[in-house]
């Protein structure tokens, strides 16, 4: 037991150590080479910006996070519903599923300007883009989870005269849980990308807007501070999902991850 905790601590300690060393190297080289702050500010300047202008940063961070979580939530619900339809409807599985898969070759980010035309520069465009990007890996993973039930388990349930309703809730659903969480971990990062990109394209608020604005003003420390906040939030959202996963998928040893990828 103590050994396991020790291993866990080491697995956290090493990356932290590397991060600290990289930041130190960055700080030292910027100072020694005399690089101007507009080009690359040292980490200390970024931290300073994060602290001093946290009002501005947080004011723009919240709307972005809110839209990210909303888009993500919709993609989870929508993805699971579509996955159920794919599992139970031959028409959808044979007709729509291939279309959904093939449509993934469209780089969804390129649709962002089109969304602006359709839905304006408001939050609707950001939300829809986040949803659209996050939806695909959710659907694929959930469908895979529902369908990957062992044939013998099916047979076993049928010998005990299990109804399809029982088979769905007592077998397919728990079987799909690890896959659904794998999908969620991909989707949350993609939802962030969706929101930020649409804020780049056209928006008057949000952390993506702030990054673009700071770039225009050549305020590089603010830009990096915004990116840092964004990364920290992304990491936190991911960690929350991973935490819920280890509680919900209690039967799975942490090393055995499942699921498919899916780009944005």
């Amino acid at each position: 037991m103590r050994n396991r905790i020790g291993k866990r601590a080491a697995s956290i300690a090493w990356p932290i150590l590397v991060t600290v060393l990289l930041l130190l190297a960055w700080e030292i080289s910027v100072r020694m080479l005399g690089i101007r702050s507009i080009i690359l500010p040292p980490p200390s300047a970024v931290f300073e910006a994060m602290a001093e202008r946290h009002d501005l940063l947080l004011a723009h961070l919240w709307p972005s996070l809110y839209l990210t979580m909303l888009g993500f939530g919709l993609s989870v619900v929508g993805g699971i519903i579509v996955a159920v339809l794919i599992t139970y409807s031959a028409i959808i599985r044979k007709g729509f599923y291939p279309v959904i898969v093939v449509s993934q070759v469209i780089p969804k980010i390129s649709i962002a300007p089109l969304f602006i035309v359709w839905f304006g520069t408001g939050t609707m465009s950001s939300l829809l883009l986040a949803f659209l990007i996050a939806f695909f890996p959710m659907t694929i993973n959930a469908a895979m989870g529902f369908e990957s039930v062992d044939e013998d388990i099916h047979r076993m349930a049928r010998t005990f005269m299990g109804s399809s309703w029982q088979i769905f809730w007592k077998i397919r659903m728990p079987n799909a849980l690890p896959y659904i969480f794998a999908g969620m971990k991909i989707s949350i990062t993609l939802a962030i990308i969706g929101v930020i990109v649409s804020e780049f394209v056209a928006s008057q608020e949000g952390i993506g807007y702030l990054i673009k604005l700071a770039g225009g003003l050549l305020d590089t420390p603010l830009m990096l501070a915004a990116i840092a906040w964004l990364s920290i939030s992304g990491l936190a959202l991911y960690a929350i999902i991973a935490g819920v996963e280890s509680w919900a998928v209690y039967w799975q040893p942490p090393s055995e991850a499942v699921g498919a990828g899916g780009g944005g």
Binding site: D152, I153, R155, T159, M161, K170, I171, L177
Partner: peptide, 19 residues
């Protein structure tokens, strides 16, 4: 004509539900 209550089956693999 279909599965029946008075039959119990043990398969080649245990097919236990891991959760």
């Amino acid at each position: 004509t279909g599965p029946r209550r008075e039959v119990g089956v043990v398969f080649q693999s245990p097919v236990l539900l891991p959760w």
